[in-house]
Simulated assay, not measured.
Amino acid sequence: MYRALNFNAGPAALPEEVLKEAEKSLLNFGNTGMGIMELSHRSKEYQAVHDQAITRLRRLLAIPDDFEVLFIQGGASLQFSMVPMNLLGKDQAAHYVLSGSWSEKALKEADKIGETVISASSKDQKYSFIPKYSQDEIPDNAAYLHITSNNTIYGTQWQSFPSNKKTPVVADMSSDILSRPLKVDQFDLIYAGAQKNLGPSGVTVVIIRKELLKRSSEMLPVMLNYNTFANNNSLYNTPPTLSIYLLSLVLQWAEQIGGLEQIEKANEMKAKMLYDVIDESEGFYIGHAHKNSRSRMNVTFNLQSEDLSREFQKQAKEAGFVGLGGHRSIGGCRASIYNAVPEHHVEKLAAFMKAFKNNN
């Protein structure tokens, strides 16, 4: 069967093995006579799927016991609001590091809830690098420090994370969770929309230190309170059952191919292929991100003119490549090379880029 050369930023490519396994369950899951999406979320069959997804995530990421794993709907965009609603106290300020459009949106929502502070920003440099911030300037009573670990639009990524923190660290990891080993206990809350590396759209994973759950006010709407999900194993209402099933299959696939260490090596190799083409093109391809901030998930670049960029995308589409246009807010080109994008697809893109340069 034909499979597109899929470089979409999200929803993104899923492992072919996962899709084939899921296909078997669409009509008859576990001899129930029902498809996986038809099962009651209160059934023992679905309960096993749900619990297995949590177990696999805990195992892959080595999540400590003092953290809860929650499945929430609404995407990372809802977390922009839920984080300050649950964690931002009356006489506190939430600190944000601005490294791209998604951190801007997170800040905008927090501004509606309480006091915020911009601890660092690279906006004046078109978000071409991860800004440095001073931990000494964050007061002891700060509610939390919010970062976005990978910036899909601008192609930048944190290479290392805050340490020796005085305040809780919250990270939006929607676009690079599961792409490399992670010390979960460096953070206090991690959230991630699934549609990049974890699975399909429809479910958002929240990993939260149990101690932080005490901050959530009982006056919050029930579906905006983290305790609702923590106290009910994320089954207070009907969860996105199909998305969670597929997420569990993706986690199983990640374990089978060697876990996060092996995935990191593959991601490094794929990113190097494309960055080498950019760096060796003598200015034909112009990378957006500074080299010390480059993302392994989203390779962003421009060509020497808009006309050339349009021609590149036109010919790429004719050659079978999908999703190489830059985000509508900044234009240019972008190749999203998440975990499930096969290495040979990236090899084909690198070869196409070299050929296009030689012909133009």
Rank of each mutant, 00 (worst) to 15 (best):
P64A: 08
A93E: 15
K357T: 03
L26I: 13
V170R: 06
A48E: 14
S134M: 00
Q47D: 14
E68D: 15
K357F: 01
E109D: 10
L14E: 14
K108C: 05
P200Q: 09
A120E: 07
A53W: 02
A120L: 02
L242I: 06
S174W: 02
H146G: 03
F229Q: 11
T152N: 06
Y46F: 15
I113M: 11
R294P: 04
D279S: 09
S281G: 04
M353G: 05
L145V: 08
A355M: 12
A271W: 04
E255H: 14
T156S: 12
H344G: 00
N6T: 02
D51W: 01
K132A: 09
S160D: 10
T55W: 05
F80H: 15
S40W: 04
A271H: 11
V170P: 00
T300S: 14
G283Y: 07
R294T: 01
K24T: 06
I113H: 11
A319G: 06
S216F: 00
Q79L: 14
N339P: 03
A22Q: 05
V49F: 13
M85P: 00
E21F: 03
P139G: 02
R296W: 09
N141H: 14
M34Q: 15
E282T: 06
L251T: 12
N141V: 01
G326W: 00
E218F: 05
T167M: 06
P64T: 06
E38F: 04
Q195R: 15
V170F: 04
L303D: 12
A340P: 11
K317Q: 12
T228P: 00
I72A: 11
Y236V: 09
S134K: 03
N231C: 05
L246W: 04
V277W: 04
Y127L: 01
F129P: 07
D279C: 01
E282D: 15
L27I: 06
L303C: 12
M85L: 15
L324C: 07
N233W: 01
V222N: 09
D136T: 03
A171I: 06
Y144I: 05
R209Q: 14
I190H: 08
L98P: 14
K291W: 04
P162D: 09
F284V: 08
N141T: 07
L213W: 06
S101F: 01
Y285S: 04
K126Q: 07
I337G: 14
Q135L: 02
D124F: 00
I278V: 12
K165D: 01
H41G: 03
K126Y: 01
L247F: 10
K108W: 02
W102I: 00
I153R: 06
N8T: 12
I286V: 13
S43T: 03
F80W: 14
Q92K: 08
Q159P: 03
Q252W: 01
L87A: 13
H41T: 05
E347Q: 15
Q195C: 04
E306I: 07
L249E: 11
R3M: 09
I278S: 01
L251M: 10
S134Y: 01
L247A: 11
E23S: 13
L78K: 15
I286R: 05
M353S: 07
L182I: 15
Y275R: 04
I208K: 03
I337Y: 10
L349Y: 11
A142I: 03
Q157K: 10
I208R: 06
I147P: 00
H146I: 02
K357S: 07
G258D: 07
T167E: 07
M297G: 15
K317E: 11
I147Q: 03
V346W: 07
L246C: 08
F301K: 04
A143N: 09
